[in-house]
Simulated assay, not measured.
Amino acid sequence: MSITPVCVGIDVSKAYLDIFDPLAGYFRIENTISAVSAFVSTQLVQGRFVVFEATGCYDRVLRLGLEAAGVAHARVNPEQARDFARALGRRAKTDAVDARMLADFGRALAPK
């Protein structure tokens, strides 16, 4: 028997990271080295699996911060994430909705 980790979804934009954790809820941090460093050092990501869309240069700070902290994560193709949302009938497109959808994507599909 395997235990599925809690999946955290993060919607990445140039200025902010919108984060949905099923245990902690929704919150937003700045997409800066200092904010990401503080975030990855918290209990909110330790032992969790983080899923975010590949956004070119905007996800770099997050990706490097997660790697440095040893946090399991998947950088997924935005088209696959959008197809997943469509398959669930989710048409709304906001940062909070996208973050939650990415958490659901991670839980349902366990991307590598």
Rank of each mutant, 00 (worst) to 15 (best):
E30V: 03
L44W: 13
D11E: 08
V8N: 07
A108N: 11
L62Q: 01
K112Q: 14
L88H: 13
S34F: 01
P111W: 07
T42F: 08
C7K: 10
Q80N: 09
D21Y: 02
K14E: 10
S13W: 03
A92W: 02
D18M: 03
F39C: 04
G56K: 00
D98W: 01
R107G: 05
D21C: 01
S37E: 09
V76E: 09
V45D: 03
L44D: 14
L17A: 10
F52K: 01
R63M: 13
V6Y: 03
R63A: 14
M101L: 15
R91G: 12
G70T: 05
F84N: 13
A81G: 04
E53H: 06
V12R: 02
V71N: 11
D21I: 01
F20V: 01
V97L: 14
V40R: 02
Q43D: 05
P22F: 05
T94R: 10
Q80I: 01
R90E: 15
Y58L: 09
A108M: 15
R28N: 11
F105D: 11
L23A: 06
A74Y: 06
M101R: 06
I10M: 07
D83V: 05
A72Y: 08
D59K: 00
R100Y: 12
A38F: 02
R90G: 13
F20R: 00
D21P: 00
V45A: 13
A87R: 12
A15L: 14
Y16I: 02
S41W: 01
R28V: 14
D98E: 11
D83P: 00
N31T: 01
K112N: 13
R82T: 06
A96K: 08
N77A: 15
G47W: 04
R60F: 15
Q80A: 14
A85M: 05
D11R: 00
P22S: 13
L64K: 06
D21R: 01
L17Q: 07
D83W: 09
A35L: 03
C57S: 11
Y26V: 08
K112T: 06
P5T: 02
A72E: 14
F20D: 04
P111E: 09
R48G: 08
I10T: 07
V50E: 10
F84T: 07
T4P: 00
T4S: 07
D104S: 14
E79C: 13
V12K: 00
T4M: 08
A96W: 02
A87P: 00
A68H: 05
L23P: 00
A54Y: 03
A81K: 01
E67N: 04
P111G: 09
A103S: 15
D83E: 12
V8R: 04
D98G: 13
L88S: 07
V97Y: 05
Y16H: 11
A92Y: 03
D11Y: 03
G47T: 01
F84L: 10
H73G: 00
F105T: 03
S34H: 05
L109T: 04
F84G: 14
H73S: 09
K93F: 07
R91L: 13
D83R: 14
T32R: 12
R28T: 15
A69W: 09
A110I: 00
A54D: 12
I29H: 05
A72H: 12
K93N: 13
V61W: 10
F52R: 04
G9N: 02
D21L: 02
C7N: 12
T94L: 11
T94M: 11
Y16P: 02
R91Y: 08
A110H: 09
Q43L: 10
A54W: 02
V6W: 04
K112W: 09
